[in-house]
Amino acid sequence: MSLAKRIIPCLDVRDGRVVKGVQFVDIRDAGDPVEVARRYDREGADEITFLDITASSDNRDTIVHVVEQVAGEVFIPLTVGGGIRCTDDIRRMLNAGADKVGINTAAVFNPEFVKEAADKFGSQCIVVAIDAKCVSAESEPKKWEIFTHGGRKGTGLDAIEWAQKMTDYGAGEILLTSMDQDGTKVGFDLELTAAVSHAVSIPVIASGGVGNLDHLVEGITKGHADAVLAASIFHFAEYSVEEAKLHMQKHGIEVRL
């Protein structure tokens, strides 16, 4: 008997629709977010994460309505990320029914915001999202840098040090996405995941690159993640969340069934 490793389906939501693109291009429509969330809940998802990638601020309210609707009928933890810049944004999401918010770019530009948010709402609802890319040459020891703007802008920040700093600032959890792997379906960056997971005392969610169920297993066994997040393998019904859990269980990982 022990704590189960979590499977977290992620919904990238743009203008009120679930979308999926490969490295932010070639976007495909994957349905109505409320419908999709309902399906994941039925299949046994441990949590659901919504990532709002709506470009225009005019359509920001759509994600609030999505969360409100889902929260009224899906009783597992819900996380919302994307565009969280101030405590009012957090308050609005929590009021809509979210349990946690993901802070990404705003943390990079103003780390104190994470402190303020954790102080005000509690660490349990502050997930710091880290988008990292490998920047070391092949002959060098591995090094990862934080990138913003969908992986386009480097920040000069070292991913491991950043994860530790965010932990000190009160983050309750880290959502770690490899920008090298994201959308490629070749599996997580396991070295990055293990390095971050060992460097911090808080749970780490591995993200970016899942293409099959073995990748989820590796994220836990080799990446030492506490939870695994995936989007497209679930959206297009390649695999159900339940299949994923059974597969993980078969490999000796404790899951909630």
């Binding site: 022990s2 189960a4 441990d46 349990q124 005392s201 808080i202």
Partner: peptide
């Protein structure tokens, strides 16, 4: 240290437990 994984147990205790 977790008996099974040999790793430091994460805090908070977050997730589904029996």
């Amino acid at each position: 240290i977790d008996d099974q994984s040999g790793e430091l147990m994460k805090i908070p205790h977050m997730g589904w437990n029996q």
